[in-house]
Amino acid sequence: MELSRADLEILVALQENSRLTNRELAKRLGAAESTTHERLRRLVRGGVIKRFTAEIDLAALGRPMQAMIAVRLRPQSEDVVERFLRTVMDDPCVVDAIVVSGEIDVLLRVAVQSAEHLRTFAWRKVTSAKSVQSITTHLVYEYRRRPITAPP
């Protein structure tokens, strides 16, 4: 799907605040509400917008500490990765799981109450999976996300 400048502006606006009304969106774009509504419907139908979500302040939920846990699995196979992900994804401290290439197989972003909770999760949940060869934990000092607008 080819995206116009107006489409990209809609994407940026909704990534900043997915609760914008169609009227607010149209005003921001300087376009008619009907035009904006149709563009938005086309972006959703075309699969460019997959869903509308809320960004949660993890600290407000009592989980102010975030970490990235790099997990190395052995043997390397799709089945091993799937089993590992099923093991860890049911834990509420897991925010994201990313399967990557290279020496590391999975990156987990977790949000926990304290260093003790992080240690407990890493030792009891992550390393309890038989396929885990090693883990490396990195504390997150700051997390920033920028709007995605178009292919590079």
Rank of each mutant, 00 (worst) to 15 (best):
R19V: 00
L20N: 06
T21K: 04
N22E: 12
N22G: 04
R23F: 11
R23G: 05
E24F: 04
L25V: 06
L25Y: 04
A26C: 02
A26T: 02
A26H: 02
A26K: 03
K27Q: 12
R28P: 01
L29T: 05
G30K: 05
A31Y: 03
E33L: 07
E33G: 03
S34G: 08
T36F: 03
T36I: 01
H37N: 12
E38P: 00
R39A: 12
L40P: 04
L40I: 09
R41K: 15
V44N: 10
R45H: 15
G46A: 14
G46V: 08
G46T: 13
G47A: 12
V48C: 13
F52M: 03
F52C: 02
T53P: 01
T53R: 04
A54M: 08
A54H: 09
A54C: 02
D57G: 00
D57T: 00
D57W: 01
A59Y: 01
A60T: 01
L61M: 07
P64T: 02
Q66S: 11
Q66D: 02
A67S: 09
A67P: 06
M68G: 03
I69C: 03
I69K: 06
I69P: 05
A70L: 14
V71N: 08
V71G: 07
L73N: 07
P75K: 06
Q76T: 14
E78W: 14
D79R: 15
V80Q: 13
V80E: 15
R83F: 10
R83W: 12
R83L: 14
F84Q: 14
F84R: 11
L85F: 09
V88I: 11
D90S: 14
D90F: 09
D91K: 13
P92K: 07
P92Q: 07
C93M: 12
V94I: 13
V94C: 05
V94G: 03
I98W: 12
V100R: 09
V100P: 06
S101N: 11
G102K: 04
G102F: 07
E103Y: 10
D105I: 07
D105A: 05
L107T: 05
L107R: 10
L107D: 10
L108D: 07
A111L: 10
V112T: 13
Q113M: 13
Q113I: 07
